[in-house]
Design a protein around this nucleic acid. Structure first.
Lengths: 108, 108
DNA sequence: TTTATTTATCGCAAAGATACGATAAAGCAA
DNA sequence: TTGCTTTATCGTATCTTTGCGATAAATAAA
């Protein structure tokens, strides 16, 4: 997960882009939505909801984990995931600060 | 810009993912930051700020345009861009609604 | 008109993402 | 132990993204 020229950009830019990339696939949005809806950790139930192979779902879960948007623990043979709301709040705060609108100027 | 299985997901999921995808590259974040900072439309000044070829910057601008995050008008030989704050607000609203935290439950 | 300036687009090479089946790992039940 | 369930990882085919140089288009100045 690296761009040729990632070093050319600032820390904030990279962090925002990284979270956005994790959110940039409808399947991952759907997974997050499911986790938010159930308010509880689920494991392979996600596979039933989505029309994807379990290997694909595992891959998406790993990306969400790597981005810090979800947390997971292993419970016996099952895995349990839930949303990391702190990461979401951090993203929203960064987002708001970065795109602070000094009047929402629009000229075009 | 299409996924094999895009149709499997809902409208909201696809819309959120599409905007997130536009935001998923540090160069595009940097461009948006520049547009927000200057509060005015700029054209090729972006090329000077970023360490990218102008063809690459044009490409990024096109993606931001297609996602509706910026607006642009041609002014003679120059092009003028600015942030579309309505799109940003729409994204933030969608985001908040979709990830409505009924108590920010975390179990892992 | 010619020339310079600015931007957009085309074509390509390299890198990355997506999805799947097959396989492996880890725990539980019998 | 053996078998079952659940999840993670590997390998691979296909498609997408990224970045650049070269080219084209469109306007302004000379």
């Amino acid at each position: 997960m690296a761009f040729h020229k990632r070093n050319e950009f600032g820390t904030v830019e990279n962090e925002l882009a990284e979270v956005a990339k994790a959110l940039s696939h409808p399947a991952r949005i759907a997974i997050l939505g499911e986790l938010a809806r159930r308010q509880a950790c689920i494991c392979g139930e996600i596979v039933e909801v989505l029309t994807l192979a379990h290997s694909t779902v595992s891959q998406h879960l790993k990306e969400l984990l790597d981005a810090g948007l979800i947390q997971g623990t292993v419970e016996g043979p099952k895995s349990c995931y839930c949303i990391n709301y702190e990461a979401f709040e951090r993203f929203e705060a960064l987002f708001k600060t970065f795109f602070a609108q000094p009047g929402s100027f629009t000229c075009c």
